[in-house]
């Protein structure tokens, strides 16, 4: 059956950046975990790097519209998220994998992804096909009808990625997606990221610098809730000198930038 392409699908986007934060402040409890952060992300795979407690997860939650910003401006897909905005349209274009991926143990993978697709207000007719495609893309097709409580950690992570990509999101937010994946799955995952990053904005939060070096086109470095550096993965590798800590050029670049930032803050 041929599908009619709607006007909305072919319309050019009216916003320059899929994610645009200006002086963004987000609280985690009482602590201001994201403090006056400026960020602009367009199409591509962006790696979000930073030490523990840098505010990565809080930033991800704010971008996923779980947390309301405490100050500043946040625009997702051209729609303002701050204030009393209508989030429904923006949320239809989002995909999110939380750091602690909660699921219903008695659901099968297919049921869970279907349920999420329904919550994402996808048209009824396209849901079964979209679910099958998402499950196949993460390599879980043979376990699609197993209950989620029978899956291993890596499989659960992949089921989490499947629910995030089921609606072909324009902004895909993955918080620590490679935890629990074995090396081969990690390679497949990077391939999937590159594929999705061709026409969507993907933000991957990770503490594994090597993931960023190979899978990401762009690197965002945050520390203490602020943006420290943003540039391409190649530029990050050039930042480091031979005396910086780290086993690879990217790691040396990472530690060099962090050290320089700490020097600036304490000075």
């Amino acid at each position: 059956m041929m599908r009619t392409v709607s006007v909305a699908e072919t319309a050019p986007s009216t916003y320059p950046w899929a994610v645009h934060a200006e002086k963004l402040q987000v609280r985690a409890g009482r602590h201001l975990a994201v403090n006056e952060l400026d960020l602009r992300l367009g199409t591509g795979v962006h790696g979000l790097l930073g030490p523990n407690g840098a505010g990565k997860t809080t930033l991800m939650r704010a971008l996923a519209t779980v947390l309301k910003p405490a100050g500043g401006r946040l625009t997702l897909l051209g729609g303002e998220v701050t204030g009393r905005a209508d989030l429904r349209q923006v949320r239809r274009g989002l995909g999110y994998l939380p750091q602690h991926f909660g699921f219903y143990p008695r659901f099968t993978v297919r049921e869970f992804v279907e349920y999420i697709a329904w919550l994402k207000e996808m048209p009824k007719a396209v849901i079964p096909g979209a679910v099958q495609r998402a499950v196949e893309r993460v390599g879980l097709a043979d376990r699609a009808d197993s209950r989620m409580k029978t899956l291993s950690g890596g499989m659960l992570r992949r089921a989490g990625i499947a629910q995030a990509i089921v609606n072909d999101p324009a902004v895909l937010l993955l918080d620590e997606p490679t935890v629990g994946l074995d090396p081969e799955q990690r390679l497949d995952f990077r391939e999937l990221l590159r594929e999705i990053g061709l026409d969507s904005c993907v933000l991957v939060s990770t503490h594994l610098v090597e993931d960023v070096a190979v899978a990401c086109t762009d690197v965002v470095l945050v520390s203490e809730g602020r943006l420290v550096w943003q540039g391409s993965a190649g530029e990050l590798a050039q930042q480091g000198g031979t005396d910086d800590a780290g086993d690879s050029a990217t790691e040396r670049g990472y530690s060099s930038l962090l050290r320089a930032h700490r020097g600036r803050v304490s000075a």
């Binding site: 939650r61 996923a64 949320r91 939380p98 602690h100 219903y104 919550l119």
Partner: peptide, 18 residues
């Protein structure tokens, strides 16, 4: 009690109607 609350909170079909 809802393990998927964080996902539910980011969905278009959330809030009072759900």
């Amino acid at each position: 009690l809802d393990p998927a609350w964080e996902l539910t909170a980011t969905m278009p079909r959330t809030g009072l109607p759900l």
